[in-house]
Amino acid sequence: MSATELLQLFFDPELFERYGARMLDGLLVTAKLVAISFSLGLLLGLLLALGRLSRNSMLRGATGAYIYFFRGSPLLAQLFMLYYGLGSFRELWQDLGLWWFFRDAWYCSLLAFTLNTAAYQAEILRGSLQAVARGQHEAAAALGLSRRTTFFKVILPQSMLLAVGPLGNELILMVKASAIASLVTIYDLMGITKLAFSRTFDFQLYLWAALLYLLIVEVIRRLLRRIEMRLGRHLDT
C-alpha cells in the first residue's frame, strides 16, 4: 500500500470537500445544544441544590426524588419519553398551546438534556455548598449578614471553586452524550456523520467525528483550567 493510498484511508480530500463543511455545521449544532442545556441546567441545578439543602422537608423530598429519577434512568430513555411519549399527546398540547414545543425534536432535546444535566449539576453544587467550612457561615452570621448576602457573597463563590472541576467533567460528559440527539432527527455532529456514512459507507467519517468531539473536549479542558486559576487566585501566595 502506498503512502497516498494510506492517507486516502484516513483523509480523502474528495470526501472532505463533500461533507467537511456540513460536519462543521453539525459541530456547531452540538456546541449550541450543549451550551444552552448546560447553562439552563446550571440554573435549574442551583435551585435544585438549594431545595436539597432547604429546611423544608417537602422541598427536600421533592428535589431528592427529581434528582434520583434523572440520575437513575438513561438519558436516552428520558429523551424518547419526552419526544415520543409526551409528543404523542398532540391534542392536549394543542389545547395548551404547547404543540410547537413538543412537536419539535430540537426543543425536546434541549429540554431532555437540561432536565438531565440539572440533576447531576445539583448534586455537584450541593456537595460543594456543603463543603464550605462551617466557620464561614458562623462568621457571616456573627457579622449580621443576611442569608442572601451570606449565600451570594460568602458561600457560593467559595463553593464554585470546588464545583468548577466536577462541573467541567459533567460538561465534557454532556458533549459526548449529546450524540444521542441524532436519534431524534437532530443533525448535530453525530447526525450529520450518520447521514454521510449512510451514503458513502466510508468509516473515516466517524474518525473525523471522533476527532471533532475531541477538539471540543480539549477546548473545554483548557478553558476550565483558566477558570480554576482565576477562581483560586486568592490561594496563591
Binding site: G135, A142, L143, V154
Partner: peptide
C-alpha cells in the same frame, strides 16, 4: 465576635473582608 480560627473570607481581600458587612448591613 472573633473566632479561634479567624474565619476570614478567603476569597476576598482584607479590605473586602472588612467592608462587606458595613456595606450590606
Amino acid at each position: 465576635m472573633v473566632f479561634q480560627h479567624f474565619n476570614l473570607f478567603p476569597h476576598m481581600s482584607v479590605l473586602d473582608n472588612c467592608s462587606l458587612a458595613p456595606t450590606s448591613v
